[in-house]
């Protein structure tokens, strides 16, 4: 089975600093692998550990520095990787991003059986790119995947966690899944993996390599655009501090919580 693992480098949103003009200070903003993509990786790795002949190719779109993230993934179990990097990809919304990634998969990794994505990326948090890639490739998708149960005769069985319950679903491959956080033991790099990660060549593809035109990608290929961006307004409330639990219970009562 050939798995394409889609990953994204994101700014560490827990550590954002603001300039005097209320714009995000991008310099020195640390990039991390999107936390949900780690779960996607672990789901792919479980399949690799469970079945024979599973190959995982990681794919990302981003600046040249994203190569470091790909090498780290190779050190912990990914087999090979592809980097999509081109100034013409910049400013892409989810539509253009998905179109670019789908074009790359079609032209470079077309013999895939399964595409694995994280359910969200913590920077944009749209949860749209995965389903959008699936649509461009005309394959089914399964979102909110909590657990991959198994793979048999060209079908993958997964469990989805939805608002109202859990759904066990069987999907015909090729397909795309979006993975939620699950219970995984963190994977440590093994010495062979580290050596492999340093030796393997990671091809970098630009817009011409994947057969897209300038109108298809980046800002130009994006149906949406940011009209304005501003710092989120802070709710200003004067907190009344209390000292004792009795006072706190009184506050809870005042706020409509009745201790019975």
């Amino acid at each position: 089975m050939k798995i394409v693992l889609c990953v994204k480098q994101v700014p560490d949103t827990s550590d954002i600093k603001w300039t005097e003009n209320n714009t995000i200070q991008r310099e020195g903003l640390e990039s991390i692998i999107n936390p949900y993509d780690v779960y996607a990786f672990e789901s792919a790795l479980r399949l690799k550990n469970k079945y024979k002949n599973v190959n995982i190719s990681a794919l990302t779109m981003g600046p040249k520095q994203a190569e470091g993230m790909l090498r780290k993934l190779i050190a912990i179990g990914v087999d090979d990787a592809v980097l999509l990097s081109d100034k013409k990809f910049a400013g892409a919304d989810t539509f253009a991003t998905a179109k670019t990634i789908a074009a790359a998969i079609k032209s470079k990794l077309s013999d895939f059986d399964l595409i694995v994505c994280g359910q969200f990326a913590i920077d944009g948090d749209t949860a749209q790119t995965g389903p959008s890639i699936a649509n461009f490739l005309d394959i089914p998708q399964v979102t909110y995947v909590k657990e991959v149960v198994g793979y048999e005769d060209g079908y993958l069985t997964v469990i989805r966690e939805l608002d109202s319950g859990f759904e066990k679903v069987r999907v015909k491959l090729p397909a795309l899944i979006c993975v939620l956080q699950g219970e995984f033991e963190p994977v440590r790099a093994r010495i062979n993996g580290i050596i492999h990660s340093q030796q393997v060549e990671i091809p970098v593809y630009g817009i011409d390599d994947i057969g897209l035109s300038v109108e298809d990608a980046g800002l130009k290929g994006s149906p949406t655009y940011v009209n304005k961006a501003y710092r989120a307004p802070q709710k200003e409330t004067e907190c009344v501090f209390v000292e004792s639990c009795e006072e706190l219970a009184e506050c809870i009562k005042k706020c409509g919580g009745i201790c019975e």
Binding site: P11, T13, I16, I24, D123, V226, Y230, R231, A232
Partner: peptide
Amino acid sequence: TFGGQLMATIL
């Protein structure tokens, strides 16, 4: 967006 710290108006 950006972990809730930035508001973006999108057309």
